[in-house]
Design a protein around this nucleic acid. Structure first.
Lengths: 336, 336
DNA sequence: TAGAATATTGCACACGTGTGCACCCTGTGT
DNA sequence: ACACAGGGTGCACACGTGTGCAATATTCTA
């Protein structure tokens, strides 16, 4: 009925449970013969050590909690892959919870992780709510934030160099000959959107182009795709509309693509487009999307490694990763 | 340093830890006054009950393990959302692990879950490996398989009616006037691909069309997108190629779309296309994809609910969910 | 051969929580 | 005054594992 414990094995082997415990952990204190006998017995009896009992006494659960705003987000999914791989490799398990950016849910998620005595927490939330930060302090375990630097005693971060990435993207458009370039931002991720806009401006200014304020639009939809659709309409309504658009992210670019299709605008012939993130489908849009790749998997992997380092009191410092420009087919020189 | 326990509270309140335990669980055995006092104290001292200690004594961890083949799969992501929501609502937490269809990894994942003493397991693996099934039996907790019926004492399933869904899809094409309809299958998900093919044949036969064996192709790539690309080439090489194609799933259809774009074939003008799954991007492809929706979120939600029912010894039976035809813009009557 | 060093093993406690049972105290009924 | 009921509380044990220390058995040294 109930699973076999070391006591059961001890009884069967005619030794104390301490000896069994030591034997199974390969302690040198146990004679080779009894060790072998005990191990064989454990195998036969189908013994599976209880991580929960072990966690209770060692005060380490070998567990991390991962909070995301949306499980279905393709960006987040890649990060999760990285986290899970690194965790698995180190013998850790990961709890997954989504906060959906709902305050009460954020609270309950963090509280749950605390009760579960996770050894660390990894957060992939574009926006760490105001009441969220103190919560994370309270949990008393290492916290690593992805793409969200925050001042805090226990919180560290691995994040993307948004500014630099954006600059690369826009620079690419300028090299192709574009001069009027739009930017469709995102109001819900203020920090990163600002940083990308800064990179956008820097690229333009580096080439002596002074950005027209009307080129930068910030639709307020919650769905990125819709932001792209609306953003395109906004930009095309301008007296002399941009010949190229840099989008906050790939989903936004997909919205633009969609709207172009509806309006009969050809990409890249009539309009060039570059995205951000390089999510999986970006390679399969029509046309395939030129974009700035964030090393999502690696970011997740590194975040988990940071947690592990933190747990072993190794010195750790925040990580800033660089993006890569992935040139596909959504850009070409302006046609006039 | 170490978190406060009920013993600490007991000391502060001048009572035994038993009383604290009872007070915090709202036992009627404790007088209202002491109960209030203890609760206030617990609050002040920042008490957070240890789920691991509780799990040890109650022999219930309020935890489930979720195994998926790939975390990044958009289908899986939606299922996970459902599982996590239902779990959260019931006060359960979910461990996430990916098996990547690697046998040794599958073993290690299941073993880990067992050690963690999860109360149940949910598996979303298109293919439950041969050595996988006995493993799941061995774990001694309820197991719910998604889209993968398996005979087994402890395993239940919630799955999609592939045959019916496929039939709807193909019927739709026939109604539009198509007579030569292709099917691009998937060799790596044998069961579901066969079922969808069966639905495809049934639809054709119901309309007196006897399917040409050459209309059904099974590329062997591991990536669905590539299967679509190759599948299209195969079908178009036929003497009189199909005017419409039913794809194993949306990613396959996206591959077809991609290839059509390369080859200058217009969808739906020159070729009609229908997918399967209705993953999020299906609404944003160019053109938006007509497809059969699987209620992914609901399937995950139900799977979790089944686990909960099983844990309370409620009678449970396998679930077969029906798909819905989502008509978008990738189909139209044949143009000759 | 005695004493000491060493190799094995068991005892007992700890981790934090839940719970059956015994105990105490107070109030009530006769 | 006594018996009894019943509410409130503490004792003690359990859950499964890890570990310091003592105890025992074995081997080595002089």
């Amino acid at each position: 009925m109930s699973p076999v414990s070391i006591k059961d094995i001890a009884r069967a082997a005619g030794v104390s449970h301490s000896t069994v415990s030591r034997a199974l952990r390969d302690s040198p204190l146990v004679s080779p013969e009894t060790k072998a006998r005990i191990k064989r017995l454990a195998e036969e009896m189908g013994y599976s050590p209880s991580a929960v009992a072990r966690g209770l006494v060692t005060r380490r659960t070998r567990t991390v909690g991962m909070v995301v705003t949306s499980i279905a987000d393709p960006f987040v999914a890649e990060v999760m892959r990285g986290v899970e791989d690194a965790a698995h490799q180190a013998g850790y398990s990961v709890f997954l919870s989504s906060s959906r950016a709902i305050p009460e849910r954020e609270i309950s998620v963090v509280r749950t992780f605390r009760q579960r005595r996770v050894d660390g927490v990894i957060v992939t939330a574009s926006r760490v709510g105001s009441l969220y930060a103190p919560l994370l302090e309270e949990i008393q375990v290492p916290v690593v934030l992805i793409n969200n630097q925050q001042p805090g005693t226990y919180t560290y971060s691995v994040s993307m160099d948004d500014r630099e990435g954006a600059q690369m993207a826009v620079d690419h458009l300028i090299q192709l000959g574009h001069r009027r370039i739009g930017y469709i931002g995102c109001v819900h991720r203020e920090a990163s959107s600002q940083a990308r806009e800064a990179g956008y401006r820097a690229a333009l200014e580096a080439h002596g182009i002074s950005p027209d304020p009307r080129w930068m639009v910030y639709p307020t939809e919650t769905e990125d795709v819709q932001n792209g659709q609306i953003g395109l309409d906004l930009l095309l309504a301008l007296p002399s509309p941009p010949t190229a658009i840099f989008c906050y992210n790939d989903m936004t670019a997909i919205g633009v693509l969609q709207r172009c299709y509806r309006r009969g605008i050809r990409v890249p012939d009539d309009l060039s487009l570059v995205g951000f993130d390089d999510i999986a489908i970006a390679a399969y849009t029509i046309p395939p999307l030129t974009t700035v790749r964030q090393p999502k998997y690696e970011m997740g992997y590194q975040a988990m490694e940071m947690v592990l380092d933190l747990l072993e009191d190794h010195p750790v410092e925040d990580v800033l990763v660089q993006g890569t420009l992935i040139v596909r087919d959504s850009c070409q020189p302006p046609n006039t």
